[in-house]
């Protein structure tokens, strides 16, 4: 029974990472790729860590797996946020189909009025 649970967790985790990689190849611009990576890759890592902990139920494994989960959950959004912010400042070209870009509107307005707050 435990073997089945661990196998399913392992396969689902690696499939989530595969989905993240397909998304990186397929999606159209930087921000969309970041969407794919932040969520799918960290969710995959969490599932696989759960598999390892269930298969080796020892204290040290549990603590280290928990540490990796905490690092991934807390640091992945921050790193992505910083890179996305810089990418928007660098005027990295956006993909097709954008409905609105209110950040660009705000930056344009500030440039026109000569103030530098953002």
């Amino acid at each position: 029974m435990m073997e089945w649970i661990v196998s399913i967790l392992l396969v689902f985790g690696s499939l989530f990472m595969l989905v993240a990689a397909i998304g990186v190849v397929k999606l159209s611009d930087v921000y969309m790729r970041m969407h794919a990576i932040t969520k799918a890759a960290s969710l995959g890592a969490i599932l696989m860590l759960a598999a390892v902990f269930l298969w080796h139920p020892q204290w040290i494994v549990g603590i280290e797996a928990f540490m990796v989960v905490i690092f991934v959950i807390f640091t992945a959004p921050i790193g992505t946020h910083m890179i996305a912010r810089v990418a928007h400042r660098m005027d990295v070209p956006k993909g097709e189909g954008y409905i609105m870009d209110e950040l660009q509107d705000e930056l344009d307005r500030q440039e026109k009025e000569g103030e530098e707050t953002l």
Partner: peptide, 13 residues
């Protein structure tokens, strides 16, 4: 940022 479908880009000071 962790919710799929939305990503924090920037914040005013």
């Amino acid at each position: 940022s962790m919710t799929p479908g939305s990503l924090t880009l920037d914040m005013t000071p």
